[in-house]
């Protein structure tokens, strides 16, 4: 565990909390892509099955349970509690265009052809593209509430910190997880365009991020 990894996990936790609190307090999920949240819940479900097979550390176990609980709570709020506020006509990204290649790739490229490994690989590839419906929705509506942009900022920061974590681990313990690193770099690249808009618009105090 290094400072980049810890900061990354905290940033990830902050992002999830920001979104959950925003939906709960505003009693609305307008502008939020429910599809992305379902994909994230699927990412955690397929990745954290090892909760039942290995014990790595109390921190590892607790964080996995917290991430699972909060992502399902977010999906519940969007599709059950506040479903009448769900912006379905703008959340139209075809997730099958993500799932089919991700499923195919996880069968082709994995460390071992075992259910747990393939599901883990699936979750790694899926996480890389899970934010696409949300970014697509923002481009479609042309705007995003500032809270939503803060959510995306911390999500992108978590990915950037994980890359720093991998650089650190490579130099200090010769650690290199090819599937996680390649997929993580691709995922982080998707946030670059958003980061530019976030810095140039949201941090200038705009109430909403209006796309050009």
């Amino acid at each position: 565990m290094n400072v980049f990894r810890l900061a990354g996990d905290v940033s990830h936790l902050v992002a999830i909390i920001i979104l959950l609190v925003k939906i709960w307090r505003s009693k609305s999920c307008a502008g939020i892509s429910g599809k992305s949240q379902v994909l994230f819940a699927l990412v955690f479900t397929t990745r954290y099955l090892d909760l039942f097979t290995v014990f790595i550390s109390a921190y590892n176990t607790i964080m996995k349970v917290v991430f699972l609980a909060m992502s399902y709570a977010t999906v519940y709020l969007i599709y059950m509690r506040f479903r009448n506020m769900y912006d379905s006509e703008n959340d139209t990204f075809r997730v099958e265009f993500l799932l089919v290649p991700v499923i195919g790739l996880s069968f082709l490229e994995n460390y071992a052809f075992t259910p747990l490994e393939i599901l883990w690989t699936f979750s790694i590839f899926l996480e890389a593209v899970a934010i696409m419906p949300q970014l697509f929705m923002i481009t479609k509506t042309g705007e995003a509430e500032s809270i939503t942009t803060h959510y995306l900022f911390f999500l992108g920061l978590y990915r950037a910190l994980y890359i720093a974590n991998w650089v650190w681990r490579y130099h200090t313990e010769e650690f290199f997880d090819q599937i996680a690193v390649v997929s993580g770099v691709v995922q982080t690249i998707f946030y670059c365009d958003f980061f530019y808009l976030y810095v140039t618009r949201v941090l200038r105090g705009k109430a909403k991020m209006i796309l050009p």
Binding site: D50, I56, N60, Y111, A112, W120, D177, A180
Partner: peptide
């Protein structure tokens, strides 16, 4: 397939 290394990251 490489040896499956310990997955300690989230």
């Amino acid at each position: 397939t490489e040896d499956v290394q310990q997955k300690d990251e989230l």
